[in-house]
C-alpha cells in the first residue's frame, strides 16, 4: 500500500489532490471515499472528473448511482440512503463494479464493507479543528 497525504487549506489544494488521483486512474479502478457529511466527497469526485473532461458531476445520494461519459466512463455511487445490502444487490452493484471499462467512485462504502472487497484507492477526507487533510491510499 502506498499512502499520499495532502494538507488542504484551499480549494486549489483539493484540486491538486484530485488531479494526482485522476492522473493515476485507469479503467476498472474502484475508488472509495470516506469522510463525514459535508467533508467534500462529492466535490472531490467533481474535481477528479474535471481532469477526465467531464463537468457535470452532481451528488448521487438520491439516484444512488450516476453515470458519466467522461474520457473514461465513470460510475459515481452513494450508499448513504441504502438501508440494507439486498438493495445494492438488487441494483446490480456487482455488474457495475465488474465493468473493466469504467472507474467506480463510492461514497459511504464503509456502511457496507462486505460489498466492496477489492478496491484500488481509498480517499480519506479528514477535518480536524478546521484543518482539512486528504489521504489517498493506493492498494496493489
Amino acid at each position: 500500500m502506498d499512502e499520499f497525504i495532502f494538507e488542504i487549506s484551499s480549494e486549489d489544494d483539493t484540486c491538486k489532490a484530485a488531479q494526482f488521483l485522476a492522473k493515476n486512474l485507469k479503467p476498472g479502478d474502484i475508488v472509495l471515499l470516506n469522510g463525514n457529511l459535508g467533508s467534500g466527497k462529492t466535490f472531490f469526485v467533481k474535481e477528479v472528473l474535471k481532469y477526465l473532461n467531464y463537468n457535470d458531476v452532481t451528488s448521487p445520494t438520491f439516484s444512488i448511482v450516476n453515470e458519466y461519459d467522461a474520457d473514461i466512463k465513470c460510475y459515481h455511487f452513494d450508499f448513504y440512503r441504502i438501508k440494507n445490502e439486498m438493495e445494492l444487490h438488487d441494483i446490480g452493484i456487482s455488474d457495475y463494479l465488474a465493468d473493466s471499462e469504467a472507474i467506480s467512485f463510492i461514497e459511504w462504502a464503509e456502511m457496507f464493507p462486505s460489498i466492496v472487497n477489492n478496491y484500488n484507492y481509498l480517499v480519506q477526507i479528514q477535518l480536524n479543528n478546521e484543518q482539512r487533510m486528504i489521504i489517498i491510499r493506493k492498494y496493489k
Binding site: T42, T58, S59
Partner: peptide
Amino acid sequence: GTTIDDAAGEAFDKVGKM
C-alpha cells in the same frame, strides 16, 4: 440553470439527518 452539487431535496434530507 441546474444544481452544481446537491439537489434541493437532498439538502433537506441531509439537514434532517443532522
